[in-house]
Amino acid sequence: MGFKLLSKLLVYLTASIMAIASPLAFSVDSSGEYPTVSEIPVGEVRLYQIADGVWSHIATQSFDGAVYPSNGLIVRDGDELLLIDTAWGAKNTAALLAEIEKQIGLPVTRAVSTHFHDDRVGGVDVLRAAGVATYASPSTRRLAEVEGNEIPTHSLEGLSSSGDAVRFGPVELFYPGAAHSTDNLIVYVPSASVLYGGCAIYELSRTSAGNVADADLAEWPTSIERIQQHYPEAQFVIPGHGLPGGLDLLKHTTNVVKAHTNRSVVE
C-alpha cells in the first residue's frame, strides 16, 4: 500500500471513529477524501466538511520552486461564519470567499490569524475590503508590521502568557507558548472536538522541520505538551499544512522538532 493511500485511509478511519463516538456532533463529509496538494491548482481553494458547521479550507501556493498546501478553518456561528487564517495570499483568499459563498452561503463576518507569517495573514486586506472584521493577538499584529505583512485590524486580548485561553464565538483560542513562531495560536472547536494546530503542528508525513527561522526550538516541545494537557479530548487535529489526523500529530511534531534540534547540535 502506497504512503499517500495509507495517509488518506488514516484520515478516513479517524473521521469514521469520530462519527461513531459522537453521532450528534459529527456529520463528516462523505463526498470524498481530504484534498491534497496535487489536486488543488494554485489560485483555487477546496472546502472539506469535518463536522456539522465545521470545515477546513485548503489552498496551495508556490514557494521556492515548489507547491505547498495550506489549511485553515471555518466555523459556523449562528447565521454567520468565523474564518481562521487566510488562504495564503490575496488571490487565494478572494477564491476562498467565493467558494464559501458557493458552498455554504453564509457571510464571513470575523477572521482570526493564528500567527504573523504570510500563509496566515496574506489576504487580510481582501477580507477587510469584503467587510470582514480581522483579528490577531497584539504580538501577531506587531510582528506582521515588522515583517511588512498585512496586519489584522483588531487585537485579541488575554493571550499574552503561555497557557492563556479565551473564548471567541464558537471557538476557544489558546496560546501554548512559542513553537513554530513566538505568537502562534491554537484554535479548538469544543462542539466538535476539532483542534486546529496551525503551523505549530505537523502532518504525519512530514519528517523535516522546514521553516524554523522564527521558531523557538527549545520551547516548542513544552508548548505541545500544554496543548495535549489542555485538549486531551480532541479527536480531529488539523495541521497548518497537509493531512489531518488525531492527537498523534502532536507527538510526531515533537519528535521531528527534537530530531532537528539534535542534528543542529551535532553539526
Rank of each mutant, 00 (worst) to 15 (best):
G2N: 10
F3Q: 05
F3C: 10
K4P: 15
L5P: 02
L6H: 12
L6C: 13
L6F: 12
K8D: 15
K8R: 09
L9F: 13
L10N: 09
L10A: 10
Y12D: 14
Y12K: 15
L13M: 13
A15F: 03
A15K: 05
A15G: 08
S16Q: 04
S16K: 15
S16T: 12
S16A: 06
I17W: 04
I17H: 15
M18Y: 14
A19R: 06
I20P: 05
I20Y: 11
A21L: 10
A21P: 04
S22T: 14
L24K: 07
A25P: 05
F26S: 08
F26V: 11
S27F: 04
S27L: 13
S27C: 13
V28D: 03
V28C: 03
V28Y: 03
V28W: 11
D29C: 08
D29T: 15
G32Y: 15
Y34M: 15
Y34W: 09
T36D: 14
T36F: 15
E39P: 15
P41K: 11
V42R: 13
R46T: 09
R46H: 04
L47A: 11
L47S: 12
Q49C: 05
I50N: 13
A51C: 05
D52A: 05
D52W: 07
D52I: 03
D52N: 07
V54I: 14
V54N: 12
W55E: 01
S56Q: 04
S56N: 11
H57Y: 06
H57T: 02
A59E: 11
A59H: 05
T60V: 11
Q61A: 11
S62F: 14
S62Y: 14
F63A: 04
D64R: 08
A66L: 08
A66F: 13
V67A: 07
V67K: 14
Y68H: 14
P69A: 13
S70W: 00
N71K: 01
N71S: 06
V75E: 01
R76W: 12
D77V: 07
E80I: 15
E80F: 15
E80A: 10
L81P: 02
L82T: 06
L82R: 08
L83E: 12
I84K: 01
D85Y: 00
T86A: 10
W88Q: 04
W88H: 07
W88T: 10
A90S: 09
A90G: 11
T93Y: 00
T93H: 01
T93N: 14
A94F: 10
A94R: 10
A95E: 07
L96R: 01
L97I: 02
L97K: 04
E99W: 07
E99I: 07
I104R: 08
G105C: 05
G105F: 03
P107R: 14
V108I: 03
V108Q: 01
T109Q: 13
T109P: 11
R110K: 02
R110C: 04
A111V: 10
V112S: 01
V112F: 12
S113V: 07
T114S: 14
H115F: 00
D118P: 07
D118I: 10
D119E: 01
D119Y: 00
D119A: 00
G122W: 05
G122N: 15
G122C: 03
D125E: 10
V126D: 04
A129Y: 15
G131M: 13
G131A: 11
V132S: 08
T134N: 06
T134K: 01
Y135V: 11
A136C: 12
S137I: 06
S137V: 06
S139G: 07
T140C: 10
T140L: 14
T140F: 02
T140R: 01
R141I: 14
R142I: 15
A144F: 12
A144V: 12
E145D: 07
V146Y: 14
V146C: 12
E147Q: 06
G148Q: 12
N149D: 12
N149R: 11
E150N: 08
E150T: 12
I151Y: 02
T153N: 02
S155E: 05
S155T: 12
E157T: 08
E157P: 10
E157V: 13
G158L: 05
G158C: 08
L159C: 10
L159E: 02
S160W: 10
S160D: 05
S160Y: 10
S161P: 08
S162M: 14
G163I: 04
D164I: 11
D164C: 08
D164Y: 04
A165Y: 09
A165N: 14
V166Q: 13
V166C: 08
V166N: 04
V166S: 08
R167P: 06
F168Y: 05
F168E: 12
F168S: 09
G169K: 10
P170M: 11
V171L: 03
V171C: 15
V171P: 01
F174N: 10
Y175A: 09
G177K: 00
A178I: 04
H180S: 00
S181R: 00
T182W: 13
T182L: 06
D183G: 05
N184H: 01
N184T: 11
N184V: 02
L185V: 08
L185H: 03
I186M: 10
I186G: 06
I186P: 00
V187A: 08
Y188N: 05
P190H: 00
P190T: 11
S191G: 07
A192G: 08
S193M: 04
V194G: 11
Y196H: 03
Y196R: 00
G197A: 06
G198W: 00
C199K: 01
C199G: 05
A200W: 00
A200E: 05
I201P: 00
I201T: 12
E203L: 00
L204C: 15
L204W: 10
S205E: 13
R206T: 05
R206I: 09
T207P: 05
S208E: 06
A209R: 07
A209F: 15
G210Y: 05
V212S: 13
V212E: 10
D214K: 10
D214Y: 14
A215Y: 05
D216K: 12
L217V: 11
L217P: 03
E219Q: 03
E219T: 06
W220K: 01
P221H: 05
P221F: 13
S223V: 10
I224H: 02
I224L: 10
I224M: 10
E225D: 15
E225M: 03
Q228L: 15
Q228G: 10
Q229P: 06
H230D: 08
Y231C: 09
E233A: 08
A234T: 03
F236L: 15
F236C: 08
V237Q: 02
V237M: 05
I238M: 15
I238W: 06
P239W: 01
G240K: 01
H241I: 01
G246F: 06
D248S: 05
L249R: 01
L250W: 12
L250C: 07
L250Y: 09
L250P: 07
K251I: 04
K251G: 09
K251C: 03
H252T: 14
N255T: 04
N255A: 15
N255R: 11
V256S: 10
V257M: 15
K258A: 08
K258C: 12
A259G: 09
A259C: 08
H260I: 15
H260K: 03
H260Q: 08
H260A: 06
R263S: 09
R263W: 03
S264P: 15
